[in-house]
Design a protein around this nucleic acid. Sequence first.
RNA 1: GGGAGUUUAGCUCAGCUGGUUCAGAGCACCUCGUUUACACCGAGGGGGUCGGGGGUUCGAAUCCCUCAACUCCCACCA
Length: 877
Amino acid sequence: MSELSTRYNPASVEEKWYKHWMDKGYFKSMPDPNNEKYTGAFTVVIPPPNVTGVLHMGHMLNNTIQDILIRKARLEGKNACWVPGMDHASIATEAKVVKRLREKGIKKSDIGREEFLKHAWEWKEEYGGVILEQLKKLGASCDWDRTRFTMDEKYYESVLDTFIHLYDKGLIYRGARMVNWDCEALTAVSDEEVIHTEENGKLYSVRYQVAGTNEFVTIATTRPETIVGDSAICVHPDDERYKHLHGKKAIVPIVNREVPIIQDEYVTMDFGTGCLKVTPAHDANDYELGLKHNLETIDILNANGTLSEAAQVLVGEDRFEARKKIVPLLEAAGALVKVEDYQNKVGRSERTNSVIEPRLSKQWFVKMKPLAEPALKAVEDGDVKFYPQKYVNTYRYWMSNIKDWCISRQLWWGHRIPAWYFGEGDDDFVVAKTAEEALKKASEAAGRTLATNDLHQDEDVMDTWFSSWLWPISVFDGFYKRDELDYYYPTNDLVTGPDIIFFWVARMIMAGYEFEGKKPFENVYFTGIIRDKLGRKMSKSLGNSPDPIDLIEKYSADGVRLGLLMTAPAGNDIPFDDSICEQGRNFTNKIWNALRLIKGWEVADKPQPEVNKLAVEWLENRINKEISEINDHYKKYRLNDAAMSIYKLIWDEFCSWYLEAIKPAYGDSIDQTTLDSTVSMFEKLSTLLHPMMPFISEEVWHGLKERSEGDCVFKSNWPVANPADETMISDFELVKSIITEVRSIRASKSLSPKEQLALYQKAGKGSYSRFESVLVKLANVDVHWSAAPEGPSGSFILGTLEFTVPLTGLVDAGEEKSKLEEELAYQKGFLNSVLKKLSNEKFVGGAPEAVVAAERKKQNDAETRIKSIEEKLATLG
RNA sequence: GGGAGUUUAGCUCAGCUGGUUCAGAGCACCUCGUUUACACCGAGGGGGUCGGGGGUUCGAAUCCCUCAACUCCCACCA
């Protein structure tokens, strides 16, 4: 024992076992359909982190859960396969590379596409994958040989193929639309990538002169800089205030352009002045109005958000500068009526946080309705199950109101759109996987033989999610090799955050049905969002996000895992605080010391004492019962409950009760039979613990006895839940209560545990008395199954049983008497309430028989208790 | 503006289709303890009118209505 520290040292243990598992290749999985050793395949694909990412608490939680599910499946004999990988994260990565080049004084536009991509790949090689290395510290048992990247060759190919497939099917089209434009990243983004929040701004009231009159109309706008792009004023056709203006024109201030005053029911009469300026180039609604009323579209902004030549004034100024600077111009023109503080929703880019600009441009879109239908049905029918279920509603709403998906991005880092233009205009194009094919198709389309030079490929790449929606299929190169996909697909569980339910989960389901005709996974486990203890989201800017690697160093990977788990029911947000890991760390220490205790025992060749035999029998039953509970928790994805079950099973039942019961007295030894049973039960506990705390469970496994090659908890078998003897378990529970009561009497009288007490129970032996030897050892009492002698004593009632501990000279009669009287009063009150119920005819008539019978039993029990208290009181005089 | 969810001990949460003392668990807290595995420990203990109000019922934390607070999602009101 001397060589084992009283403190568990996780750092070396965790490194040792991770290396061991890796060296043995235990994380690897290969399709093996005919191997009877396996009870089936169990597949999880990791939500691929961005190559740009570093590990944060969300990943920790997420991957801990995946690891638990995978390890549990492995223990259950499944061929478990956890596929790791990374996402190329088009916008985020490109932004980082651009920034890095800028620091070196290089402009993206100067070096061109080829050169830029070279830099991007370099960047990926250098920084990408940090997060995967960090996951290893957490204990993630991914099959690292399978690590995939969304821009791997085969993966890239599969993205192009799906694009072509959808195009040929008529589900991808190209067109000019109002899109969300990110002025910083200089690309279009999808609706999902725009985050709307309430922001403080100003509302400017501006008056326009009605041409040929001295009359003015006043409009309100939050964006005065767009006034110079106005091409109409709009009022409601029924608005009496403005009927006389129908057919007239208004003069746009500053630029003095005459624009029509149009009528449209889109305008809300009772909002503001009921008069609206129309700027078709810079607002989605105005754009629609423009189309309807055939208005001029004046695009006054450049792609980077500065004012263009078309604005005529403030050319080259940034839109927000222009917003300030146009105010004096409006004032000078006598057009500014007032400026008020105003709150409105502003959309910002998820990636750059830049304010999104509605912008008219030609982009590629996916028609979503046909894809959404089977995907919605799958979830509604429970073919794909969500945990927690409430997300089904969110999903349904989005799926049934789905809009077309803008998938083109004006970026270079990503999967380039396989469209090739050959004509003068940009409407002559063909879609093909390679230049050669494109040339062939284009020649056919053009009706003449074209040369390679006549073609140019679309400059845009696709939305990152257009590649990640293929993840469960393409990680297995599924479009090109069937063997792996047929074996591993559909995958089993997907573990992810609810924030990407639309971005990713929904689209994977669509892709699964569209491309494979099957769901991509059976269950989706939505984790909560990790917040700080004040309930705020963790973010870099707040600096409230702990570094997971620091946490692991401080509390051990096992400790952090357990801490996160215990406070994380599916879907609930987690207010994170370091202290929740402390509990996990303490638990590892407890387990470590249990191992030390057992290892420290001298073994002797001697018969098994009765108390040990009983304790072993009880714990075996107790474990069996708990295995059923744990299995049930897992089945329902209640991992926090499963964690709590194991925690209590080990700490309370195994350590506090069982080990205390069998522990030899000082200097004494243990018998071989008990030791063997103890080792084998501790092994079982290790296996149960292993998915959650992989490292210490492995350490215990090997600490318990010498192991042969390949014998480890990692490869052990999930224990079978044998039927448990419930009576035995409840008997032991009663014995525990007796022990606690006796200890409580000791505590209140400051009696040493070493001083033996007598315990009387006059009703005689019940089935619980089989544990008499446990009672004797743990409460240090001499048990008498008879009435207690008269005299001062302490007593307690459990159920209907009254126990007495004589305390001669320690208790005065008055004190004992008043305690008993208090108890008597309580029991009488209880009896009264029961009697009241039973005398209520409606209750006796209306309630089910079992309930009434239970009430009668309560009455009997209470009466028994009252009688024995009264008898006791009588002896006290 | 719509929709969903939450509201039970100081904190995080269990409490299934109303009925066995159903008001629970873990942590935190308090008291005691250098008992030979562990003070990252042991023994014992206190603590909640189940968000407010109303209703249904013999009986409600559990069902219904209503109000309030918080969270999230969706939505083009200048």
